[in-house]
Structures are given as C-alpha cells and as structure tokens.
Design a protein around this nucleic acid. Structure first.
Lengths: 142, 142
DNA sequence: GTTGCTGCAAAGTGTTTGCACCCTG
DNA sequence: CAGGGTGCAAACACTTTGCAGCAAC
C-alpha cells in the first residue's frame, strides 16, 4: 500500500509529464523515514544503503522535486547547508536551535503570528511566509 | 577625530595583539558608510574605490574581525551569501524582506520578544539570540 | 627585527549542470 | 521508441587558506 506521500508525489509526476523511477521512490522513502531537517548529504548516505549506485546529484534533484510537489520545504539554519523538512502532514512551526548539541525543538505560538500580521499591516507589507528561529541552549546543555 | 566605532575596533585590536593597518581602516570606513546588510562582494567594490589593490580575502578577514569586535553581525537572508549589519549603535530588530524588489524593512516588536521568552522558558530553553524574518511583498510591490 | 598582515592564487564547501547512456511510459 | 532520468565529472558561487613578501609596533 502506497503512502499518502507517495500518491502526492506520483500525482505531481504524472501531472507534469515526468517519470516514476526506482531512485525517486528510494529517495522519497528515505526522506520519510529520516528525522526531520535532513541535509542532502545525510539523506544521500541513508539512500546509498538501499541504492548504492545513486548519485548525489540525483538526491539534490529529487529533493527539488519533493519541494516543488509540496512534500518538503527548504530550511536554512545558517550552518551552511540547506535542510529539508517534512511538509505534508506537518503543520507550520518555528524552531529553537541548541547551539551546543544541535537539538531542534519545534514550537508553534499563534499569538506571535498574530502580532507579526499586525506589524506587517502597519507597514503595508503582506506576509507570504516567515521564519522564526531562536538560538540558545536546551535544558540538557546549560 | 576618530569615530566611536574606530575606537572600538582599535581597542579590540590592541587587546588581542593585532595591528591597525591602512586596509583595516578603509574597510571599516566603507562599512560604516555603506547601507546596512552589505555583502562582502559589495563592500569589496566600495573599498576598491579608495584602495584599489586590496584583495577580496582581506575584506572577508576584516569582516570577521568586525564581527568579533562586536561592530558587525552576520546575517543570512537565504540568498546564498552572508550579509553584514551595523551593530554598534543599531538596536536589535527583525526584518521584513520583499521578495519582489528586495527591500528590507526593519522592525521591532517587544511583545513578540516577550512571547518568545515565555515559550522558550516552557521548554527549558535559554535564548541567546533569535532571528525573525517575514517574507512577502512591500507596499510598492502589490 | 619580530610578528602579524596582505595580495594572490589555490583549495574548500555545498550545490548545480552538461552529457552520453539508460529506462519509463 | 521518444523523452525524460541517471551517474559521473566538471562547473559554480561564495568563502577560506597557504605562502612569500611587506608593514606595524
């Protein structure tokens, strides 16, 4: 039984005259199994376990495809590489990033989002997306 | 008469057994004259006007020095290059970035910061810095 | 005159692209 | 069997580093 995500991807693929390949299935599967906020390199290493001949370029290309089809979002935590987040059944949230151990805590605070809208409106600005990252130390790294 | 920033830099330099050079003075001056959120490349072009032989590497090295001495902060707006912001007499603020024309509106909303602290505390997290970017369209780009 | 600084070019990092061959539809 | 996909290597953009000569203290 295909996962909901697999359906979403294959829908997108057929709507755009693209093709379902073994590699794309593998990358999707690995992406879904991976913890959130994978980098391309990390995902590449996971994928090579089941698909040893795959190229890093294919992983990048497939991640772009996942992003376009709405399954992934690109994140940038300022560590020099893009990270990819599960998007499909993952509501929007913000991040606390522990600069000691790298742990990422996700949170959601509707009152903050409301204030953002207010201040944007005061400036005649229309928000299409936003990004709030808190850097510091988690409970284990004090 | 040296600017306050020049004093800060030269203090830092003498405290660390470093040296004041013509190039460092030039980069600092250009940085202070530049609009906020310069990239290294942009600053390099400005500096070459008064210091044609300077190397890009020196600009990078000096920007690192400005960052360490507290005069600049590194920013990343996800456009693939670091940008540097005046820090010394520039209070903390967040950004609205127009994805159409690139305009950056700075804002400050203390109630948002207060909510951030609350939610961090609930998670046992201590904030050392944060970053809030709103992406969308400014009043001119609707 | 010692030690740090500079300019240059080369190396690094993460990501993208060109191309000949391969595989899906 | 046509057209997109793949792996590989080369190209990229931005940044950092190694080194021989230079300049500040």
């Amino acid at each position: 039984m295909p996962s909901k995500e697999q359906e979403v991807l294959e829908d997108y693929i057929s709507k755009h005259n693209l093709k379902v390949t073994r590699q794309r299935r593998c990358v999707l599967k690995a992406f879904l199994d991976c913890e959130n906020h994978v980098s391309a390199e990390e995902l590449y290493h996971t994928v090579t376990e089941t698909e040893p001949k795959i190229g890093l370029a294919t992983v990048y290309r497939t991640l772009a495809l996942l992003t376009q089809s709405g399954l992934a979002s690109e994140m940038d935590f300022g560590d020099g590489q893009k990270r990819y987040e599960h998007r499909y059944r993952h509501k929007h949230h913000d991040h606390m990033i522990c600069t000691e151990c790298g742990k990422i805590i996700e949170f959601n605070q509707p009152s903050i989002e409301k204030l953002q809208e207010e201040i944007a409106a005061e400036n005649g600005f229309t928000i299409t997306s936003h990004k709030l990252d808190l850097f510091g130390n988690c409970a284990d790294c004090k």
